[in-house]
Computed example of a mutant assay.
Amino acid sequence: MNKPTLFVEVHILQSLPPSNVNRDDSGTPKQAVYGGARRARVSSQAWKRATRTEYAKHVPDADRATRTKRIATLLAQRLARPVAKGGAGLPDEQADRLAAALLEPLGITKSAKKDDQSAYLLFFGRKQLDALVKLLEGKAAELAALPDADLKSEVGKLNVVQTLSTGHPAEVALFGRMVADLPALNVDASVQVAHALSTHAVRTEFDYYTAVDDENTDDHGAGMIGTVEFNSSTLYRYAVLGVHQLRDNLTDAEETRRTAVRFVDAFARSMPTGHQNTFAHRTLPHLVLLTVRTDQPVNLVSAYEEPVTGVTGLATESVVRLADELKAVGETWGDQPLRTLATYTTEGDKITEVFGASLPFPALLDSLDALVGQWLTDLQITSTEAAQAGAR
Rank of each mutant, 00 (worst) to 15 (best):
T28Y: 15
T28D: 15
T28E: 15
K30N: 08
K30S: 09
Q31F: 08
Q31E: 14
Q31G: 09
V33M: 12
Y34N: 07
Y34D: 06
G36T: 06
A37Q: 10
R38G: 04
R39C: 02
R39S: 02
A40W: 04
A40E: 05
A40L: 05
A40Q: 04
R41G: 01
R41S: 02
V42N: 05
V42W: 02
S43W: 10
S44V: 07
Q45T: 13
A46K: 02
W47I: 05
K48S: 07
R49I: 03
T51K: 00
T51Y: 00
R52E: 05
R52M: 07
T53K: 12
K57Y: 12
K57P: 02
H58L: 10
P60Y: 14
A62P: 04
A62N: 11
D63G: 01
R64D: 00
R64V: 00
R64N: 01
R64F: 00
A65K: 00
T66V: 14
T68I: 03
T68C: 08
K69V: 13
R70V: 10
R70P: 05
I71M: 12
A72K: 10
A72G: 13
L74H: 09
Q77C: 04
L79Y: 11
L79E: 04
L79K: 08
A80Q: 03
P82H: 08
V83Q: 13
A84E: 14
K85H: 15
K85E: 15
G86K: 08
G86H: 08
G87N: 06
A88K: 06
A88F: 03
G89Q: 07
L90D: 01
L90I: 06
P91T: 06
P91W: 09
P91K: 07
